[in-house]
Design a protein around this nucleic acid. Structure first.
Lengths: 153, 153
DNA sequence: CATATACCCATTGACGCCCATATATTCCCA
DNA sequence: TGGGAATATATGGGCGTCAATGGGTATATG
């Protein structure tokens, strides 16, 4: 499986370390399995993460913008300067930068939510509530959810 | 990771030295890891920097502008004639030329902002404000920033 | 000779590596 | 198929190394 799926709640130890769920580690390319990138989610008070390969994709896209436009600077600044890279140690743990922890309200535990090609980290209570809210919103539009799930390609 | 990412705020000591963030040093080619180039940003009161290899890329970008346009001359002059090369010492520190420091209003601290293939140095307060402004402009077009981050290849 | 700059050494705190353990999971065999 | 061994995962903690910073001194360069 090369997708981030399922959810996990892991503890943050005294040193600030937290285990990246084992199944998430296996999604990272074997070459860069000890490095992940993190950034603030745009829409929610959560942290998003993924492997470095994805960052290179993003870099390529930004590089294709007009170098002298304002958009270029805005994207470049908002993305590259807000992204942090973090090393995963031999036991599969990493440090969450203080600023990101504050942004997500994470203190002693972090909830990991698989999102396919990336994952999110939430303060557990807020994260679970967000899941419920998401589901509730989807069910209100049952028809479109049905289509989404049953449609053949 | 071969991109300049994340942001750091480092001190400038009595001798005018400042540490190039360790992760930035690692982006420089091993061959010329002790040399960087700096120039005034065209659009903002900041200093831009990168490894020497990047110069060719900049030249290409400028070359793609209409040769007879006023922009061509302006960019060409503003960038090439203003470029300075600086040596990084064994501890990873370098001197910011006085003229560039003045241009960016940098005094006792410098904020480093990763921009992918290059980086920017700002007076910390101004730099952080710039980041906020950038992000605010982009959030007005939430869709485009989201696409940039989540789109699959 | 005077000023600027590079090299060397030192200090501090943060982080990565190593070792250890408890629990959970898988695997294997009788 | 049940039980136990082997393995993996999440977690805890000691300690060495490295990054950021400070300062002395040699050296270059005009």
């Amino acid at each position: 499986m090369d997708l981030f799926v399922s959810k996990y709640i892991n503890k943050i130890d005294k040193k600030g370390r937290v285990s990246l769920p084992s199944s998430f580690r296996n999604v990272l390319p074997k070459a860069n399995r000890n490095e992940i990138i993190l950034y603030k989610s745009i829409k929610t008070p959560s942290i998003e993460g993924c492997g470095v390969g994805r960052l290179k994709e993003i870099a390529k896209r930004i590089n294709n913008l007009d170098f002298f436009s304002e958009d270029y600077d805005d994207f470049s600044t908002s993305i590259f300067s807000e992204i942090v890279t973090t090393n995963v140690d031999r036991e599969g743990r990493f440090l969450i930068p203080e600023e990101l922890k504050l942004y997500a309200g994470i203190k002693t535990e972090a909830a990991f939510f698989g999102q396919g090609h990336f994952f999110q980290m939430w303060e557990p209570k807020q994260g679970l509530k967000n899941t419920e809210d998401s589901r509730r919103r989807l069910l209100k539009e049952k028809k479109s959810l049905r289509m989404m799930l049953t449609q053949q390609k």
